Amino acid sequence: MSTLLKTSLATTEQEITATLKASMKSAIKTALPHLHIFHPTSWSSFLSTLDSLPEYLLNDNPQHKSMHRRIHSLILEDIDAFVWSIRNTSTTMSSSSNTLATASAQLTTRVAKLGKLLSCATVLTSESNLLSSYRPALPTSWPQGTPVTRLAVRRVDVLKFAPGVSVEDAEKERVQRWEVVSRGRFECWRVGVGARDGEGFVFRVGKGIEMERDGAR
Rank of each mutant, 00 (worst) to 15 (best):
L117R: 04
S90I: 09
V123K: 07
T89Q: 11
I79S: 01
R87G: 10
L118R: 02
V83G: 11
E127T: 12
L117V: 01
T109F: 11
E127Q: 15
V111Q: 06
T108P: 01
N88D: 15
S97Y: 14
T99I: 09
A121V: 09
T125H: 04
N98R: 14
S104V: 00
A103L: 05
T91Q: 13
V111D: 02
K116D: 12
V123N: 12
S97T: 12
T108Q: 01
T108M: 00
M93Y: 13
A105I: 08
T102L: 08
L100Y: 04
S104P: 02
D80C: 15
W84K: 12
T102G: 14
S96K: 08
S95G: 08
S128E: 06
T89E: 11
S104T: 02
I79R: 01
A101Y: 02
I86P: 08
W84G: 10
L107D: 06
L107N: 00
G115K: 05
L117F: 06
A101E: 04
A105Q: 06
S95Q: 12
A112V: 04
S104E: 00
R110Q: 07
K116V: 08
L117E: 04
A121L: 12
W84Q: 15
A81H: 12
L117K: 08
L117N: 05
R87M: 14
S126R: 08
R110N: 00
S85H: 13
L118N: 05
F82Q: 04
S104A: 07
S128H: 09
R87E: 15
Q106G: 06
T89L: 10
K113S: 09
S95R: 08
A112M: 10
M93F: 13
L100S: 03
W84Y: 15
N129C: 14
L114S: 02
A121F: 10
S119D: 14
R110C: 01
L124E: 05
K113Y: 14
A105P: 04
T122Y: 03
G115P: 03
T108L: 00
S126I: 03
S128V: 07
T91H: 07
E127L: 14
S85W: 10
L117H: 08
C120G: 05
